[in-house]
Simulated scan of single mutants.
Amino acid sequence: MSERLPSLRVQTKYDKLVARDGVVICFFMRRSHGAVAHAVWRALQTYRRAIPPGALGWYPNHNGDWQPLDDKGWKHIREKMLERDWPVACGVLLEEHCDTTGGYNFEYEGRWLDSAFLYDRDATCAVSFTLPTEYLVEHGPARVRALALELASELPFNFGYASFALVAPDGQWYSARKTVRELRDRYPGLDIYKLAETSKHIGTQARGAYWLTFLGLPLLGRLGGPENLRRHLPFPDVSLETLPPLEGERVLITLGEWPEAIDTQQQERPSPQLLALGQLLERFLHEERSNWFLFLKQDPEDMHRWIHRFCP
């Protein structure tokens, strides 16, 4: 329920806001940039129509300097995503603000999977869209779910999810990692993500069990297909929906009306359906290979325990 979703603000010691509460909608695609770029562009336009006008206001240029996302800026982003023929990586970051962390952000990691400069055979393209919690509360979870479905319909995903999250584009919470670790440990339902790193090697695996979990092939087949999922998730609050036009090859699993934060200080526990889905996915969970998460706590097993936190 909405009253169980906390308001979170993470600041540096210099009072700069680097992370805040919200919802992240994320998809991983085991296809090259050239095969997904137009689909990602269409999804971006769907996202823009759903959020307030001008909510995406800035982007960094190739030198890292912030530029306004005006008509000229959108022309540049479109050309960067769609009109470069040579096989180079395409990273796009669009943010609400250039000097603080806002609730509306778009990230895209486009890779050419057959490039000689690609070092991991399990690399993917990936995209994320974020919303502030206020959007979820104002419009309701059904609207957010509908938006996630609309985005998914455009994308050839292998795995995707939507979750209550610590919104911090490009992992900007690093400078406040102690606070982030404390929030992570208090709220198991709080997703902490770094799209650029996870997408380097997630392949066709799952990142976890979430409020909204999108499954495509080959993972859906390894799980026994939609009918097997229905048998193992016989909960009244769980819905399983196949996605056209490839019905039977892509599904959305919804675990209840609202996402869960799971405040351990209030003795809250993960729902039975979340644990059941976690158990189903356990054999197929992706283990992070880079150290972006390890600095949260200097323990080699720390990340593994977090990734498997819903596996009973």
Results as ranks from 00 to 15, higher is better:
residue 1 M to L: 04
residue 2 S to A: 15
residue 3 E to H: 15
residue 4 R to K: 13
residue 9 R to G: 04
residue 10 V to N: 06
residue 17 L to P: 07
residue 18 V to K: 03
residue 19 A to I: 03
residue 21 D to W: 03
residue 21 D to A: 12
residue 25 I to L: 12
residue 27 F to D: 05
residue 28 F to A: 05
residue 28 F to D: 12
residue 28 F to W: 12
residue 31 R to H: 14
residue 33 H to I: 00
residue 35 A to K: 13
residue 41 W to C: 02
residue 42 R to G: 02
residue 43 A to V: 10
residue 44 L to N: 03
residue 46 T to K: 08
residue 47 Y to D: 04
residue 48 R to Y: 06
residue 48 R to S: 06
residue 50 A to K: 08
residue 52 P to D: 09
residue 53 P to H: 08
residue 55 A to P: 02
residue 58 W to D: 04
residue 60 P to H: 10
residue 61 N to V: 05
residue 61 N to K: 04
residue 62 H to E: 14
residue 66 W to P: 05
residue 73 G to P: 06
residue 76 H to A: 13
residue 81 M to P: 02
residue 81 M to I: 15
residue 91 G to Y: 13
residue 92 V to I: 15
residue 96 E to H: 11
residue 97 H to I: 01
residue 104 Y to D: 03
residue 105 N to E: 13
residue 107 E to T: 09
residue 108 Y to L: 08
residue 108 Y to E: 00
residue 109 E to I: 12
residue 109 E to W: 04
residue 110 G to K: 04
residue 110 G to C: 01
residue 110 G to F: 05
residue 111 R to S: 11
residue 112 W to P: 02
residue 114 D to T: 14
residue 116 A to W: 11
residue 121 R to P: 03
residue 133 T to E: 03
residue 133 T to F: 03
residue 133 T to S: 12
residue 134 E to F: 02
residue 135 Y to N: 07
residue 135 Y to R: 13
residue 139 H to D: 09
residue 144 V to G: 02
residue 146 A to W: 03
residue 146 A to V: 01
residue 147 L to Q: 00
residue 151 L to C: 10
residue 153 S to L: 11
residue 155 L to V: 08
residue 155 L to S: 02
residue 156 P to H: 11
residue 157 F to P: 05
residue 157 F to L: 12
residue 164 F to E: 05
residue 165 A to W: 01
residue 167 V to S: 06
residue 169 P to M: 05
residue 171 G to Y: 11
residue 172 Q to Y: 08
residue 172 Q to L: 12
residue 174 Y to D: 14
residue 182 E to G: 07
residue 183 L to K: 09
residue 184 R to L: 13
residue 185 D to H: 06
residue 189 G to F: 07
residue 195 L to A: 00
residue 204 T to M: 08
residue 216 G to T: 08
residue 218 P to C: 10
residue 228 N to F: 09
residue 228 N to G: 01
residue 228 N to D: 15
residue 231 R to D: 13
residue 232 H to I: 00
residue 233 L to M: 02
residue 235 F to D: 00
residue 240 L to A: 01
residue 243 L to Y: 06
residue 244 P to L: 10
residue 245 P to R: 09
residue 245 P to M: 11
residue 246 L to S: 12
residue 251 V to H: 01
residue 252 L to C: 15
residue 254 T to M: 07
residue 256 G to Q: 02
residue 259 P to I: 07
residue 262 I to L: 07
residue 263 D to E: 11
residue 267 Q to D: 15
residue 270 P to S: 10
residue 271 S to I: 05
residue 272 P to T: 10
residue 274 L to G: 02
residue 279 Q to T: 13
residue 281 L to H: 03
residue 285 L to E: 09
residue 285 L to S: 01
residue 287 E to Q: 14
residue 297 K to R: 15
residue 301 E to R: 12
residue 307 I to V: 15
residue 308 H to L: 04
residue 308 H to G: 00
residue 310 F to N: 10
residue 310 F to S: 05
residue 311 C to I: 03
residue 312 P to W: 08
